[in-house]
C-alpha cells in the first residue's frame, strides 16, 4: 500500500518535470498488455560518463516474442570509441555509419516502448544511461514499471540453494534456463535472449526447478 503510494508520488513528481507535452504518453496507463525487453551497448560501464552505441528491443505479448517488430538503432557518438570497448561490444566506428543522432534515436525508442513495462537483465544500468539522455532533453526519468529477470531467477533459485551464492551471470542463467545461445551478443540478440529467459521463468509453472 505504502509502496504504491510512494511510486504514485514519485511518478507525479516525475511528470511535473516533463518539459515536452508530446511525451505525456509515457505516463498514461498501458493498454497493450505488452512488455518491452531492451538492452543497450555502451562505450563503458559508467552511466554518468559513457554513451549509448546501440539499443535493441523486442516486445513480449503473452507467450510470444514479437520479433516481427524488432527495434534496433545505432547512435552517433560524441567521442571516438575506445578500442577497449570495441573488444566487448564489437561495434566498430564503421558500424556506426548508419547511426542516427542520439536525440532522434532516444525519441524513437520512447515511442517504441510507450508506457509498457520494461524487462531486462541488470536493467538498472540500461535505464540509468537512458535516463541520462532524457533528463537533459525532457527533464524526466523513465516512468515505466520495471522487471529485473535476474531477480526473478534469484527468487526461483533461492529455495533450491538456500545458502545463497547464486550465480547471476547472464551466460549461467541462459544455460540454466536452457535458452539457446543465439550467437553474437549484440543489443537485439541479448534482448531476445533475455525475453526468452523471462518467458521461461514466468510462463511455466515452476517447471524450471525440475529442469535446472
Amino acid at each position: 500500500m505504502f509502496k504504491n503510494f510512494f511510486s504514485d508520488f514519485k511518478k507525479k513528481r516525475n511528470l511535473a518535470k516533463l518539459k515536452d507535452e508530446k511525451f505525456r504518453f509515457l505516463f498514461e496507463e498501458d493498454s497493450s498488455g505488452e512488455y518491452v525487453v531492451f538492452d543497450t551497448e555502451t562505450t563503458g560501464l559508467n552511466p554518468k560518463k559513457d554513451e549509448i552505441l546501440s539499443i535493441g528491443a523486442v516486445k513480449i505479448k503473452d507467450n510470444k516474442i514479437l520479433t516481427s517488430q524488432t527495434f534496433e538503432i545505432y547512435l552517433k557518438n560524441s567521442a571516438e570509441i575506445s578500442s577497449k570497448s570495441i573488444e566487448i561490444h564489437h561495434i566498430r566506428p564503421c558500424d556506426l555509419e548508419n547511426a542516427i543522432d542520439a536525440k532522434e534515436g532516444i525519441e524513437r525508442f520512447l515511442h517504441f516502448i510507450g508506457s509498457r513495462t520494461l524487462v531486462g537483465y541488470y536493467l538498472e544500468f540500461d535505464v540509468a544511461i537512458v535516463n541520462k539522455y532524457i533528463k537533459k532533453s525532457l527533464g524526466i526519468e523513465l516512468p515505466n514499471e520495471m522487471i529485473e529477470v535476474s531477480e526473478i531467477y534469484f527468487d526461483r533459485m533461492m529455495p533450491l540453494i538456500p545458502q545463497g551464492n547464486i550465480d547471476l551471470r547472464f551466460d549461467t542463467i541462459l544455460k540454466k534456463c536452457r535458452v539457446p545461445d543465439m550467437g553474437a551478443h549484440n543489443a537485439v540478440n541479448d534482448a531476445i535472449m533475455t525475453a526468452m529467459i523471462y518467458l521461461k521463468l514466468t510462463q511455466e509453472n515452476n517447471n524450471v526447478k525440475t529442469s535446472i
Binding site: N63, K64, T67, S68, E204, N205
Partner: peptide
C-alpha cells in the same frame, strides 16, 4: 519474411 516472424514459447 523476417518482418512476419515472431518467437513463441510453449511449455511441456
Amino acid at each position: 519474411l523476417m518482418k512476419k516472424i515472431d518467437i513463441a514459447y510453449y511449455t511441456k
